[in-house]
Structure formats: structure tokens, C-alpha cells
């Protein structure tokens, strides 16, 4: 579904991604790990279309279409979802209005009429249950005053509503306590089918105990330097990144 070839990207003139190659097929779970500053978040931002990042060369195809040519909202309609590391607070915009606008924007894209109020409420109720999100959060402003755990659960809730074909979860585990981590991970697992795929970006093996990846990549200095089976994550946890650096002939 996703084919990234030799992707280079920069922000404020500083090159962060230096030739990423990545292929994701339906039904797969990929984990991307790597030390701080290696470009993990940049990769997720570039794939989701953040206009602050500038793609200098390379390509990314999503089901044969040029992903990089699409504005962020079209990527969303086509089925790309980004779960933010730091979900953005939007004071004054209620979660309800936000989700209704999101759902109806997608329906419009596919030439469908807006969802009725009753249908929409039913959808919200169903999806909320997946991540045990409190009903009262729905009436509040988007992410405003949410705890760290609530914000991350809210991301997975939105993912459940939008039913993406490819979900990119950027450090969804950061800032979560053990219970919240379990709820979030279970939410992701519940949403998994053989038709969708997930890219999990994380620092820690811990999340991968809950969300089992098929493939683990190590991103270092803007490149994927190692791709292997899930054992790699365990090895990293044990040996740290220095081992990778040595393997690459550094230090």
C-alpha cells in the first residue's frame, strides 16, 4: 500500500531525512525505532503532509497514487492517519463539532451526504467504547485539559472513527501509565484487520509487547539502517543503540 523510495526532507533548511526506503503491505505492523533526533517524527510528519516540512527528493506512493502531491486532508480521506506524539489542543472547538466536521468532510470527498445526527451519535458511542473514552470528554474542547493518557486515547478514538488504511502512531506510548498503555494498545489491536496496516514509532520495546510488529526498522541519522524481525526490538532494549552505531562503523 505504501512505497517510500529514497525520501529526503528538510525543515528550515536542515536535512533530516536522508533517503528513506520503506514498503508497507496490508495486514502488516511495522515498528520504527531509533534514538532521539534520528528523524522518526519527521518521517511521520512528512507522510501526513505537514507543510512545515519540505520534501527535497524521493517519492512516496500510496496505493499507486503520489502521496506527496496530496494535501493533508486528501491523505486523510485516502486513508492515512497520523496519531500525534503531542496531540494539539484546540480551545473553543468541541470534540463533537470537530469529529462531525471530519466525518462529513470525508463523506463529501466520497460524494456521500452528511451523516444524520442520530447516526453520528451512534458512531461516536461505538468508537468511544474501543478506547474506554469518557463521554464527558466529547463535550469538551479538542484535547484541552485532557490528561496525557486521555489525549492519546483520544487519538486512537479518532483513528477508530476515521478507519484509516494506514495508521502512523508517533510515540503513542510516551506519557502513558501502564493501564493507559494497555487500553491504547488494545484499541489499536481491535482496529487491526488484514486490510489495514500500522506503523508504530516508539522508543521502547514495552509497547511492542502489546502491539506485535511483523517488522522492526531502525532509523538513524535520517536513514533506515536496519530492518529485521521483532527479535531486533528485544536486542535493542538489551544492548541500546550504541551497538547499532558500532555496527555502522561509528565510534
Amino acid at each position: 500500500m505504501l512505497k517510500v523510495s529514497d525520501l529526503h526532507a528538510e525543515i528550515n533548511g536542515k536535512e533530516i531525512l536522508k533517503g528513506i526506503n520503506l514498503e508497507v503491505r496490508p495486514g502488516e505492523v511495522h515498528a520504527i525505532m531509533g534514538p532521539n533526533g534520528s528523524g522518526k517524527s519527521t518521517l511521520s510528519m512528512v507522510l501526513a503532509g505537514n507543510p512545515m516540512y519540505n520534501v527535497t527528493s524521493g517519492s512516496a506512493e500510496f496505493y499507486g497514487k503520489d502521496l506527496l502531491a496530496m494535501p493533508p486532508e486528501v491523505r486523510s480521506h485516502e486513508g492515512v492517519f497520523l496519531g500525534f506524539q503531542y496531540p494539539v489542543e484546540i480551545p473553543g472547538v468541541s470534540m463533537m463539532n470537530f469529529m462531525r466536521a471530519a466525518v462529513n468532510a470525508r463523506r463529501k470527498y466520497f460524494g456521500e451526504p452528511p451523516m444524520s445526527a442520530a447516526e453520528f451519535l451512534k458512531l461516536m458511542r461505538e468508537k468511544r467504547a474501543i478506547v474506554e473514552l469518557d463521554n464527558k470528554l466529547a463535550s469538551r474542547s479538542v484535547n484541552e485539559g485532557f490528561s496525557g493518557g486521555e489525549k492519546k486515547r483520544n487519538e486512537i478514538f479518532q483513528m477508530a472513527v476515521l478507519e484509516p488504511r494506514l495508521s502512523i502512531l508517533d510515540e503513542t506510548d510516551s506519557g502513558l501509565d501502564i493501564d493507559a498503555l494497555r487500553i491504547v494498545a488494545e484499541g489499536v489491536n481491535k482496529l487491526k484487520t488484514d486490510r489495514n496496516a500500522t506503523i508504530v514509532i516508539t522508543h521502547y520495546q514495552r509497547l511492542l509487547d502489546y502491539i506485535k510488529p511483523d517488522i522492526v526498522h531502525i532509523l538513524y541519522k535520517g536513514r533506515i539502517v536496519k530492518t529485521a524481525d521483532p527479535e531486533l526490538a528485544l536486542e535493542l532494549e538489551e544492548r541500546g543503540y550504541d551497538w547499532i552505531k558500532r555496527e555502522l562503523g561509528e565510534e
Binding site: 503532509g49 505537514n50 493533508p72 486532508e73 496531540p87 494539539v88 470537530f98 471530519a102 468532510a105
Partner: peptide, 19 residues
């Protein structure tokens, strides 16, 4: 905020309006 809203499918214009 604009980008966040667009990743959820809102057009730039719609996101601006809501904000």
C-alpha cells in the same frame, strides 16, 4: 492546530473557519 485538523480530513479553509 491547522495541520492537526487537516490530518483529520478538514480542508484548510474549513479548519481556519473553525479556529
Amino acid at each position: 492546530q491547522l495541520f492537526y485538523m487537516r490530518t483529520r480530513g478538514l480542508s484548510a479553509e474549513e479548519a481556519r473557519m473553525l479556529l
